[in-house]
Design a protein around this nucleic acid. Structure first.
Lengths: 179, 179
DNA sequence: CTTACCATGTAAGGCGTTACATGATTCA
DNA sequence: TGAATCATGTAACGCCTTACATGGTAAG
């Protein structure tokens, strides 16, 4: 069994919940999924065409809005494909933290530079945490509305835990470097 | 200024501390850097040849051991290149957690499957944490020996914080799913 | 009326992995 | 003597990003 392309699975996963355009799929990635996944238009649009040609999704034009929109819907075959992938064990969880890399080699440039890299990370996380907290609040309040919300909440809480741990580490790391 | 290839920078970073063979570089990646970076032989060996051809490293054959070993040393130009990269702001910290992706779409398959993905993650992290803790202990004891140890310790502590936060989340997530 | 956002797509190329290919040495 | 580990490398290919190219619509 060929290992399923993840971009296909992400898109099918999003479509399994609601019909979407390519543009909307990208927006979901940049908001709900951004804490653990990302993708660009250059991979989304070709993947969508491919899914249609393989019968895993269908495309229709939006008749209602004034805009030119191509709305994609998952098919039964697509749902089967998604379920099959979900059942497979996870192949890899990847982390590539350039910040940590620069820190690891920090001796070459000294503590000042290391601290400024840490502060950039800290700033980014501090800025993003409020969004996650508000998502958490909304999801908790609407847990009963949709079975899916429980799963969304889980991932939001993962992000919150990670961000908080990271912010804590930033503080301690700066202190160690200042010594 | 062309954005420096990260594989080149990682290798130069490792060589900035000590001379190494390609094989040893891979080992460093799989132990000290594994918590935030990875690379395969298929990228390491070609990158090493490239660094030599650009004058950023030099290669010599090992005369002492019985084995066929090619030992690489960073040049002054290589050190300049590395320092320049270290001074640049971080371009991207990436996370691609397939586990979280499968969890996000968990509604499609129900809580049993979600829990088994979480347990796989939990098992992996629980197995790796002791190594990090022992690295932390060793680095703390030898902080005075080498300026670099402080920076290594920082990254080890990052890993510990992240793993602990993640393990905590695993427990809570399983509980929420069991409800 | 202009800025921001909505909306779709392609081409080129970078980056990296997997699988393959080979062989020596160490240790139990 | 067989398994594990040391050790170097290539070829094919997959996946994805960046940059480009184009144009419509909503809102102030």
């Amino acid at each position: 069994m060929a290992s399923e392309k993840r971009i296909d699975c992400v898109i099918l996963g999003l479509l399994s919940h609601e019909d979407l355009t390519g543009y909307e799929i990208k927006k979901r990635m940049d908001t709900a999924l951004k804490y653990f996944w990302s993708a660009s238009y250059g991979s989304i649009y070709p993947a969508l065409s491919d899914l249609v040609s393989r019968g895993l999704a269908v495309k229709r034009e939006d008749g209602e809005s004034g805009r030119h929109r191509l709305i994609y819907t998952i098919t039964d075959a697509g749902r089967d494909y998604l379920r099959n992938w979900l059942a497979l064990p996870v192949l890899k969880d990847e982390i590539r933290y350039e910040t940590l890399l620069k820190l690891f080699f920090g001796k070459e440039q000294g503590p000042g530079q290391a601290i400024s890299h840490i502060e950039a990370l800290e700033k980014k996380f501090r800025g993003e945490l409020p969004y996650l907290l508000s998502a958490e609040k909304i999801l908790k309040e609407s847990l009963g509305d949709d079975t899916a919300h429980k799963y969304y909440l889980l991932t939001a809480e993962f992000g919150i835990k990670m961000y908080r741990a990271c912010l804590e580490w930033c503080g301690e790391a700066k202190q160690l470097l200042a010594e």
